[in-house]
Design a binder for these strands. Sequence first.
DNA 1: GTGCGACGATTTTAG
DNA 2: ATCGTCGCAC
Length: 721
Amino acid sequence: MDVSHLLDELNDAQRQAVTAEDGHVLVLAGAGSGKTRVLVHRIAWLIQVHHVSPMGLLAVTFTNKAAGEMRGRVGRLLNLRPDGLWIGTFHGICHRLLRMHAAEVGLPDTFQILDSEDQYRLVRRVIRDMELDEGEHPPRQVQGFINHHKDDGRRPHQIEHFDRSFQARQVEIYQRYQDYCERSGLVDFAELMLRTVELLRDRPERRAHYQSRFGHILIDEFQDTNTLQYALVRLLAGDNNRLFVVGDDDQSIYGWRGARVENVAHFNRDFQPDVIRLEQNYRSTRTILEAANRVIDHNDDRMGKNLWTEGEQGEPIHLFAAFNAEEESEFVIARIHDWINQGGKPSDCAVLYRSNAQSRLFEQALLREDIPYRVYGGLRFFERAEIKDAMAYLRLIHNPHDDAAFERVINVPARGIGEQTVARIREHARAQGQSLGQAVTELIAQGGLSPRAARSASAFLQLIDNLVKATESASLAETVSALVRQVELVAWYQSREPADRAEAREENLAELVRAADSFDQPFEDEQAGLSVMASFLSQAALEAGEHQAERWEDCVQLMTLHSAKGLEFPLVFLAGMEEGLFPHQKSIEEPGRLAEERRLCYVGMTRAMQRLYITHAESRQTYGQTNFSRPSRFVAEIPDELIESIRSGPHVTPAGRSFHSAPRAEAGGLRLGASVRHAKFGPGTVVSLEGQGPNARIQVNFESAGAKWLVLAYANLELVA
DNA sequence: GTGCGACGATTTTAG
DNA sequence: ATCGTCGCAC
């Protein structure tokens, strides 16, 4: 068979990876080096040249988007419907395994997936039930505690603690949360992974089955795997299967959510793979790559990699120092204007920033200039309140013992069931070991509720019951449509929200009916014996949808550096390159977090294809306070000869705006860089200013005492000429 | 049981 | 500044 089309368009390193014989492979794939292409061609190569059955392959990614893209490209390359191929996310694949072996891992067939909001509510519920202080045990933090332990594969009893300690209470919450989940047939995201690992670990026959099935396992973005995911990979690999792992330690930016960049090195140690580096970049100019290389070079403990290109030198990197954040945004928008006027597309421009709050000024400026834009982030379709409300009803129709769904909507729309009543139901449920649904039924029958509450609660049960009966033989879309109508959700939003808000919710509910109508049950779900409704519910949790639907529009793209990973744009702005903002203050303070910030910077820079602007502001409002800061240290890590500085001047700001109206970077005559003397600490240099008036604080780097934060009003600093 | 004002926290986020 | 949660008054 002629397989030249699988190799023709590949460079040497790519070809070496695609055709690797025997053993494991670790592909260190730099930004823009064609890693997806390598994965896709590798799969095609295994199938066409090595005649590996598509059933014997497992390809794992982190996002549905990446999985979808890989599936599509493999299908096109091989000209087949890649149905039998297991390509999916870690969570999607674990979900599938759990559906097939639910009974073995002690889950009901109807088990549902909790998304992070559901999980948060449940954790809060448990804390309240235990009558613990939410100040001492903030639900968010406890949620993180639970997830971190699960991500590391630990059940409550495996967490060390002293009796009656804080830690002991956290463990207790974890345990009760877990009990609650089991009672209600609920599984959170980390649990999907953990149960699967336990299944394979504790059931030798299952382990043997899947080990013999997946002779080839391919993993994308390996630097983002957590402990549990690595454990899963090892279990599936066994002694005989071949791993093909692709990753880039320099693009590991998710350590804070459990990713272990060390897994790349561990993989190298544990499996002794062939290491192949993809260093040729097909995206950026030489200047941009050189600058990015030089920045990332400041990190220790790298696997080592240097991006290069056959492409052009390109323009220098443009650096702009603004007086304040407003001027920064105006500068950026003016440059975008130039770009568009010269025939560029708005969608080729991306403004990247460290934190979401920074988007506002850019949005305002774009709005003023009438340039279309789109902000990434925010709620996705299945995360919207109205959608989650409707889905909670659907969950109750599917499984009346789903307590999380029950709690969410027992009084939505308001039907006179208040906290008192719900507390009584909860109490009864706990005492009897029942679900909330069972408990309320029993309470009504026993007269355990006030007549008023009983009437309301009956109405709720009746509503669910009616829906169950009415939709027994209905299609999914009919069910969703009936539910939205009978629950009268739209009227509820209209009664308590401004018209436009309610209208948007109504729109979304209509969209939900359409989504249900066009829902295609995945073949594998059907095979696993799932009902269409169960599939739909799972999909909603596993695939919350795109951030915004209007992808087709030609828009300037605004997003955080994190969301920009994997994307590329001809024109990129890295905005807010300031100490304290990027690297973020919290990352500066916590040891070891700085390297990840630097990688984030590297990711940001390597998004740019042709032109890269880096901007920073001397002052900006943060949390309603004016702060002054110096340019990010990362800017200084770029060689001067690659940078062209743009001075602020009339040509960059719209006429009529005066710089002098902008707050200057000074407070009490003290500027950044000013030499000062303190009575006790001696001579030093001003490094940072923050706040105004009596709150103003100043950071001084003292020659002998080091860096100190002082309250300006009390510091008594003497200005040294 | 529902509706407003105080209070406090506020990096990044896929599944 | 802004948003979500909490406590208290209707």
